[in-house]
Amino acid sequence: MDIRIVLDVKPVLGEGPLWDVGQQRLYFIDSLGKRVFRCAADGGELRAWTVPSAIGSLALTRDGEGAVVALADGIHILDFASGEIVAVIDPEPGLESNRLNDGKVDRGGRFVFGSMNLPETESSGRLYSLDPAWRLRVLDEGIVCSNGPCWAPDDQTFFFADSWAGEIWAYDYDIQTGDATNRRRFAALPSAEMGAHDGSTVDSEGFVWNAFVYEGKIARFAPDGTIDRIIEMPVRKTTSVMFGGADLDVLYVTSMAEPPLPRYPGDPAARGSLFAVTGLGVTGIPEPRFGGVASDAHTARLVQPRTISR
Rank of each mutant, 00 (worst) to 15 (best):
M1I: 13
I3W: 08
R4G: 04
G14I: 11
P17V: 03
P17L: 03
L18S: 05
D20Q: 13
G22Q: 14
R25W: 05
L26M: 02
Y27W: 15
I29L: 15
L32R: 13
G33N: 04
V36K: 08
R38G: 12
A41F: 05
D42V: 01
G43N: 04
R47S: 14
T50H: 13
V51C: 11
P52F: 06
S53C: 09
S57N: 08
A59H: 04
L60Y: 06
T61H: 10
G64N: 13
V69R: 02
G74D: 13
I75M: 07
I75T: 08
S82E: 10
G83P: 14
E84Q: 14
I85A: 08
P91S: 11
E92M: 05
P93Q: 07
L100R: 13
N101Q: 12
N101Y: 10
D102C: 07
D102T: 12
G103T: 10
V105P: 04
N117D: 15
T121E: 15
T121P: 08
S129N: 09
W134G: 09
D140G: 09
I143G: 02
I143W: 02
V144P: 00
D154Q: 01
F158P: 00
F159H: 12
E167P: 01
A170K: 03
I175C: 01
D179Q: 13
A180R: 01
R184W: 12
R184Y: 11
R185T: 15
A187L: 01
A196P: 01
H197S: 06
T201W: 03
V202S: 04
V208K: 02
A211F: 11
V213S: 03
G216T: 00
K217G: 04
A219K: 00
F221C: 00
A222E: 10
A222W: 02
P223S: 08
G244L: 02
G244K: 03
G245I: 01
G245W: 12
L248E: 02
S255W: 01
E258A: 10
P259A: 14
Y264H: 01
G266R: 00
P268Y: 00
P268E: 00
A270G: 06
R271Q: 03
S273F: 05
S273M: 07
F275M: 02
V277K: 06
T278E: 14
L280K: 11
L280Y: 09
G284Q: 02
F290D: 06
G292Q: 10
A300N: 06
A300T: 01
L302M: 13
V303I: 15
V303D: 15
R306W: 04
T307K: 13
I308H: 13
